[in-house]
């Protein structure tokens, strides 16, 4: 396998598939998830499991609002978060921000208002994917669509990808030992089909397509919301200059990323791999030095 050149380990990279050695390849595919229209129906979660034959993830009432699947994992490749946040001073209703009751109502009953944000999370198919970079077996690979996929028949369950992912996406399935995550429906893409989750989403919260086109759509949507006064709207993972070179699956959020369980400023760990190796080298040198020094001097 070829050694990736320094520049493609981080920073802007417009064509990850070409970088991975695909001479002729389709346009990069991805998701734009517009959480402002997500209704939390979880059709995406179910469709994903149904199509990919992912096992259930256990029956546990968590008390985390209506979210009983809790997080992305080896057996949950789409995850719908339910952010139930009390708000003390409800925003005026015409801001387009859903609130409960009017200020007066809240004051009368003594209850706070509430805001309920829903958002469907998924593997980001990072431009610089740490999971892929650290995988020692080559089980994780970059597809011709620019997506990141695990080959279950190669994975040896070393688990390195797990702590490497800055979004906490990929995980090992306990009963099985191997790593699993969203494949961006690689099999469906090859058949020119829309991924199962996007296909099932009733409100077009999950939009699938060519990444550059999705970027344009997202920018328009953001402008539209800002125009309506929804200042809290922001894009997440859209910026090709960010710590992972931008996400193949990016989002429109209505609050800070961490509120949804997303890292505010993720960085691909291999951005620092050069420095890491340098320090390892220096430390190895130090060990040699200590060794040599130990044998120098008076014989005792």
């Amino acid at each position: 396998m070829s050694t990736p050149v320094e520049s493609s380990l981080w920073g802007r990279l417009d064509d990850p598939a070409a970088d991975a050695g695909y001479a002729d390849h389709p346009k990069r595919k991805g998701f734009f998830t517009d959480t402002s229209v997500c209704i939390g129906c979880k059709a995406c979660e179910v469709a994903c499991k149904e199509w990919n034959q992912v096992p259930d993830d256990g029956f546990l009432l968590t008390g985390m609002s209506y979210d009983n699947s809790q997080q992305l994992g080896a057996s949950t490749w789409r995850h719908v978060a339910f952010v139930e946040k009390p708000i003390d001073v409800p925003a005026p209703v015409d801001l387009g921000m859903p609130t409960i009751g009017s200020e007066d109502q809240g004051a009368v009953s003594g209850d706070a208002g509430v805001r309920w944000l829903m958002s469907s999370d998924v593997c980001k198919h990072c431009t610089h994917a740490a999971c892929l970079d650290v995988c020692p077996t080559g089980a994780l690979f970059r597809t011709e669509f620019g997506t990141v996929v695990v080959q279950p028949d190669v994975c040896n369950g070393c688990g390195y990808c797990v702590p490497a992912c800055p979004y906490g996406v990929i995980d090992l399935r306990k009963e099985d030992g191997r790593a699993f995550k969203c494949t961006l429906c690689y099999d469906r893409l090859k058949d020119d089909q829309t991924p199962a989750c996007a296909q099932a989403c009733p409100t077009e919260s999950i939009q699938f397509g060519d990444l550059d086109e999705l970027h344009e759509r997202a920018d328009r949507r953001l402008a539209e919301l800002h125009e309506k006064g929804v200042d809290v709207a922001r894009l997440y993972g859209r910026d090709p200059e960010d710590g992972v070179g931008g996400d193949g699956a990016f989002f429109l959020l209505l609050d800070e990323p961490e509120v949804y369980g997303l890292p505010p400023d993720p960085v691909v760990t291999t951005r620092d791999i050069g420095s890491i190796w340098k320090h390892v080298g220096a430390a190895a040198g130090a060990l040699v030095a200590v060794g040599v020094a130990s044998f120098l001097g008076r014989r005792r």
């Binding site: 396998m1 050694t3 990736p4 380990l9 970079d133 650290v134 995988c135 020692p136 077996t137 080559g138 089980a139 190669v154 994975c155 040896n156 369950g157 070393c158 688990g159 390195y160 090992l172 099985d176 030992g177 191997r178 790593a179 291999t270 791999i273 190796w277």
Partner: peptide, 19 residues
Amino acid sequence: DLGRPERFLNMLRVIKPTS
């Protein structure tokens, strides 16, 4: 520690400086 110890040798399929 490997999830699939029988596949230890897969480690030696490739050599990756990033890993």
